[in-house]
Structures are given as structure tokens and as C-alpha cells.
Amino acid sequence: MQDEKVIMELQRRALQIRKHVIESVYRAGSGHPGGSLSVADVLACLYFHEMRIDPQRPDWPDRDRLVLSKGHAAPALYAALALAGFFPEEELKNLRKTGHFLQGHPCMRKVPGVDMSTGSLGQGLSVAIGMSLAGKLDNRDYRVFVILGDGEIDEGQVWEAAAAASHHHCSNLVAILDRNGLQIDGHTEEIMNLEPLKWRWRAFGWDVIAADGHDMGELLAALREARGTGKPTLIITYTIKGKDVSFMEGTLSFHGKPPSDEQYVKAMTELNQIEEELHD
């Protein structure tokens, strides 16, 4: 029963994140809704359940860290941080606006709660390894999470880092792969084949767990399992780009495009409807 309540709460959080994504990208007139909507459930699980954080102390040395390596999902990260209390929710309206602090891609020097500046794909896993090693050096028990896009792992640096993480026994490191199957130019398997994903990562010395990236029960179970693998762990979360907005789901066109006026209204109507159903 407890689990069910937790799951309900996380679903509610994920929906709030999605609404903020649509709202902020619409107001900004640019941004990446597709890949932000696909990671909303993962971010909800991390910030409202799994991670040890204190929004009052964003620089707390013992906090768990999150590196959003697919930095273009910034609207979803900002929503999660605001909802968790790192900064006021009203600020989300100022995404990408001149003179405001919410940059198009995460900037650790400007946004409380952002643990690393990202945006150029392929770099986050390396940074997460550095955080992991620092924790081990200092005998701190924090954990490090990193969210990778599936298209992102075309980058060679990801594989340098994959080798390094197991070599350095980064058991406090969990990478989450947002496997939505799409990158800007098309389906990931058409642009640059990624499979067999599990075996590639296992061959690099990682423990690999698979989960439905929109099923809170599966996500929580996967995150729980990742705590005790004793190895760097990859959770492949199978997701839908544009999740929960019908005309964005599974499409390429909303990778980096805001909704039009009508699309905005339609998207919010759909998300509100899902929210109402949740409360029933």
C-alpha cells in the first residue's frame, strides 16, 4: 500500500514536470520538449524519492549528485528542481530569457541544484566518474546519477568513460539511459545502431538493468536494485519521446521545437486531463 501511495505521488510529480516543460518551452519560444517529456518520470523518481538532497543546501557536500548529460532536457530538470524547492516555480516562466538565470542548457554557476553544466553531448559520464572518485577519496557515501540520451552515446567519449567507470570501480555511480529511440536525424537504429545495448555495456564491466521508463513501479525497483550491484550500473529506461502529449509522442518534429499556440492549448488540456484522472 505504501508503495502505491509513493507511486501515485511520483506520477503526480512527473505530470507537474511535464506541464512545466510545455509551459516553459512554449513561453521561451524554443527548447526541447520531446526529450524533456521522455525523462520526466525518471527525474520525478530521482528528485522525489531516490536522491539524498536538501534544497536549502544545494552545495551540501554529502548530497547525491545528478549530471544531466543530455543537457537539452533542461526544462524537465529545472521543473524538478523548482518543484523540489531549489528555486521558485515562477522562475520557470523565464526559461531562456535574457537576463534570467535559467539557461537553455544547464549551468551550474547560475542555477541552484544543478550539479554540472552540460549541453555538449557525451561529456556527462566522465564528469560523473570524477564525482564518484571524489566521494570515494573523501569517504563520503553519496551517490552519483547521470542521465544519458540514447543518441548521445554515439559520442566516443561516452565509451572512454564507460571503460573508466568499471576500471575505477565506480560502484556509487548509476547511469540512466533515456532510450526513446529517436535522435535529431531519425531513429537511432537508422542513424547509428546502438544495439545490442545491454551487451555492449556489460562488456564494458557494467551491471545493466532494464525498466519501462514510464512505469514508476519498475523505475523504483530498478533504482533499488542499482543500490546493491557493487558495480557502475546502467539502467536502460525504455521511453517515448514526447510522452503524454499525443501529437508529440514518438515524433521527431518536437525534438527541438516549441508548440504553437493551438498545440500549447491542446497539450495542456491533455496533461490536465491525465492529472484529473490521477486524482480520481
Binding site: 551550474m108 554540472m116 566522465s126 571524489a134 567519449q157 572512454e160 568513460a161
Partner: peptide, 18 residues
């Protein structure tokens, strides 16, 4: 190892932690 790009990232991560 012979992986300079990763080295710079790891160095950055260590630096974020003091």
C-alpha cells in the same frame, strides 16, 4: 589511459567536489 577527453571530464567532476 589514452583517453584525454574522458580525463578532462573526470578532472572536472573531481573539481566540482572540492
Amino acid at each position: 589511459g589514452i583517453a584525454e577527453a574522458n580525463m578532462m571530464g573526470v578532472a572536472a567532476g573531481l573539481a566540482t567536489c572540492g
